[in-house]
Lab assay of single mutants.
Amino acid sequence: VDYIVEYDYDAQHDDELTIRKGDIIKNVKKLEEEGWLEGELNGKRGMFPDNFVKEIK
């Protein structure tokens, strides 16, 4: 499942992704941690907030 970024987010920890509006995040999975998703961007896998992105259908 792929998501498109709607709002910029700067990573706060090493396991998070810095994302920018218009980025496409690939292979996204829901995490047990409420409010977070995990996906791949530019060869890096990491977490990001689910309210900054929208699923591409």
Rank of each mutant, 00 (worst) to 15 (best):
Val1Ser: 14
Val1Tyr: 13
Val1Pro: 12
Val1Arg: 10
Val1Phe: 09
Val1Ala: 13
Asp2Val: 14
Asp2Gly: 09
Asp2Gln: 15
Tyr3Val: 08
Tyr3Phe: 06
Tyr3Leu: 04
Tyr3Ser: 03
Tyr3Glu: 01
Ile4Thr: 05
Ile4His: 05
Ile4Ser: 11
Ile4Met: 09
Ile4Arg: 13
Val5Asn: 01
Val5Ser: 04
Val5Met: 02
Val5Gly: 12
Val5Trp: 01
Val5Gln: 01
Val5Pro: 02
Val5Ala: 07
Val5His: 01
Glu6Lys: 12
Glu6Ser: 08
Glu6Leu: 15
Glu6Thr: 14
Glu6Met: 14
Glu6Tyr: 08
Glu6Arg: 15
Glu6Val: 15
Glu6Trp: 09
Tyr7Lys: 15
Tyr7Gly: 13
Tyr7Ser: 11
Tyr7Asn: 11
Asp8Met: 05
Asp8His: 08
Asp8Lys: 05
Asp8Pro: 11
Asp8Asn: 13
Tyr9Asn: 04
Tyr9Phe: 10
Tyr9Ser: 02
Tyr9Asp: 00
Tyr9Pro: 00
Tyr9Gly: 01
Tyr9His: 05
Asp10Val: 14
Asp10Pro: 07
Asp10Gly: 05
Ala11Gly: 10
Ala11Arg: 11
Ala11Glu: 05
Ala11Met: 12
Ala11Thr: 04
Ala11His: 04
Gln12Tyr: 06
Gln12Arg: 10
Gln12Ile: 12
Gln12Val: 12
Gln12His: 11
Gln12Ser: 10
Gln12Lys: 11
Gln12Phe: 07
Gln12Trp: 07
Gln12Thr: 08
His13Leu: 13
His13Gly: 08
His13Phe: 11
His13Met: 10
His13Gln: 11
His13Lys: 13
His13Ile: 06
Asp14Trp: 14
Asp14Pro: 14
Asp14Ile: 14
Asp14Met: 12
Asp15His: 12
Asp15Gly: 12
Asp15Gln: 13
Glu16Asp: 05
Glu16Arg: 03
Glu16Ala: 07
Glu16Pro: 00
Leu17Tyr: 01
Leu17Lys: 00
Leu17Trp: 01
Leu17Ser: 01
Thr18Asp: 06
Thr18Asn: 09
Thr18Lys: 05
Thr18Arg: 08
Thr18Ala: 05
Ile19Tyr: 02
Ile19Val: 04
Ile19Asp: 00
Ile19Thr: 02
Ile19His: 01
Arg20Tyr: 04
Arg20Thr: 06
Arg20Lys: 08
Arg20Ala: 06
Arg20Val: 09
Arg20Met: 05
Arg20Ser: 05
Lys21Leu: 06
Lys21Val: 12
Lys21Arg: 11
Lys21Asn: 05
Lys21Pro: 04
Lys21Ile: 09
Lys21Phe: 06
Gly22Trp: 06
Gly22Met: 06
Gly22Phe: 07
Asp23Arg: 03
Asp23Ala: 11
Asp23Met: 15
Asp23Asn: 10
Asp23Leu: 07
Asp23Tyr: 06
Asp23Thr: 06
Ile24Trp: 05
Ile24Glu: 03
Ile24Lys: 05
Ile24Leu: 06
Ile24Asp: 01
Ile25Pro: 02
Ile25Asn: 00
Ile25His: 00
Ile25Leu: 12
Ile25Lys: 00
Ile25Thr: 01
Ile25Phe: 00
Ile25Arg: 00
Lys26Gln: 07
Lys26His: 13
Lys26Leu: 08
Lys26Trp: 07
Asn27His: 13
Asn27Arg: 12
Asn27Phe: 15
Asn27Trp: 14
Asn27Pro: 00
Asn27Glu: 08
Asn27Gln: 09
Val28Gln: 01
Val28Gly: 13
Val28Phe: 02
Val28Ile: 05
Val28Tyr: 02
Val28Asn: 02
Lys29Gly: 11
Lys29Phe: 15
Lys29Val: 12
Lys29Ser: 13
Lys29Asn: 08
Lys29Trp: 15
Lys29Thr: 11
Lys29His: 11
Lys30Arg: 07
Lys30Leu: 12
Lys30Gln: 09
Lys30Pro: 10
Lys30Asn: 08
Lys30Ser: 09
Lys30Phe: 07
Lys30Glu: 07
Lys30Ala: 09
Leu31Arg: 12
Leu31Phe: 09
Leu31Ile: 12
Leu31Glu: 07
Glu32Asp: 12
Glu32Met: 10
Glu32Pro: 10
Glu32Lys: 12
Glu32Gly: 11
Glu32His: 10
Glu32Phe: 13
Glu32Leu: 13
Glu33Asn: 08
Glu33Tyr: 14
Glu33Ser: 12
Glu33Ile: 14
Glu33Trp: 12
Glu34Ala: 13
Glu34Thr: 10
Glu34Val: 11
Glu34Arg: 14
Glu34Asp: 11
Glu34Trp: 06
Glu34Ser: 09
Glu34Lys: 12
Gly35Asn: 07
Gly35Arg: 06
Gly35Val: 03
Gly35Glu: 05
Gly35Tyr: 04
Trp36Gly: 01
Trp36Ala: 02
Trp36Val: 05
Trp36Glu: 01
Trp36Arg: 06
Trp36Ile: 05
Leu37Ser: 12
Leu37Tyr: 06
Leu37Met: 11
Leu37Lys: 04
Leu37Gln: 04
Glu38Asn: 10
Glu38Ser: 13
Glu38Lys: 08
Glu38Leu: 06
Glu38Ile: 11
Glu38Met: 08
Glu38Tyr: 12
Gly39Tyr: 00
Gly39Asp: 00
Gly39Gln: 00
Gly39Arg: 00
Gly39Lys: 00
Gly39His: 00
Gly39Phe: 00
Gly39Pro: 00
Gly39Ser: 01
Glu40Ile: 08
Glu40Arg: 07
Glu40Gly: 05
Glu40Thr: 12
Glu40Phe: 11
Glu40Val: 13
Glu40Met: 09
Glu40Lys: 06
Leu41Met: 08
Leu41Gln: 03
Leu41Trp: 10
Leu41Ser: 06
Leu41Pro: 00
Leu41Ile: 08
Asn42Tyr: 15
Asn42Val: 06
Asn42Gly: 08
Asn42Leu: 10
Asn42Pro: 02
Asn42His: 11
Asn42Ala: 12
Gly43Met: 12
Gly43Asn: 10
Gly43Lys: 08
Gly43Glu: 06
Gly43Pro: 01
Gly43Gln: 07
Gly43Val: 02
Lys44His: 08
Lys44Ile: 09
Lys44Pro: 01
Lys44Asn: 09
Lys44Trp: 09
Lys44Leu: 11
Lys44Met: 13
Arg45Asp: 01
Arg45Glu: 03
Arg45Pro: 03
Arg45Trp: 12
Arg45Lys: 06
Gly46Val: 03
Gly46Glu: 00
Gly46Met: 01
Gly46Trp: 01
Gly46Arg: 02
Gly46Thr: 01
Gly46Ser: 02
Met47Ala: 07
Met47Glu: 03
Met47Asp: 02
Met47Phe: 08
Met47Thr: 09
Met47Gln: 07
Met47Leu: 09
Met47Ser: 08
Phe48Thr: 01
Phe48Asp: 00
Phe48Asn: 01
Phe48Lys: 00
Phe48Gly: 01
Pro49Lys: 14
Pro49Asp: 03
Asp50Pro: 09
Asp50Ala: 15
Asp50Phe: 15
Asp50Glu: 14
Asp50Ser: 15
Asp50His: 14
Asn51Lys: 14
Asn51His: 05
Asn51Ser: 10
Asn51Phe: 04
Phe52Gly: 04
Phe52Lys: 05
Phe52Asn: 03
Phe52Gln: 02
Phe52Arg: 06
Phe52Ala: 09
Phe52Trp: 03
Phe52Tyr: 09
Val53Ile: 04
Val53Tyr: 03
Val53Leu: 03
Val53Pro: 02
Val53Gly: 09
Val53Ala: 15
Val53Thr: 06
Val53Phe: 03
Val53Glu: 02
Lys54Asp: 06
Lys54Pro: 02
Lys54Val: 10
Lys54Phe: 06
Lys54Met: 09
Lys54Tyr: 05
Lys54Asn: 08
Glu55Ala: 07
Glu55Tyr: 02
Glu55Thr: 05
Glu55Gly: 04
Ile56Ala: 05
Ile56Gln: 06
Ile56Thr: 04
Ile56Tyr: 04
Ile56Gly: 03
Ile56Phe: 03
Lys57Trp: 15
Lys57Pro: 15
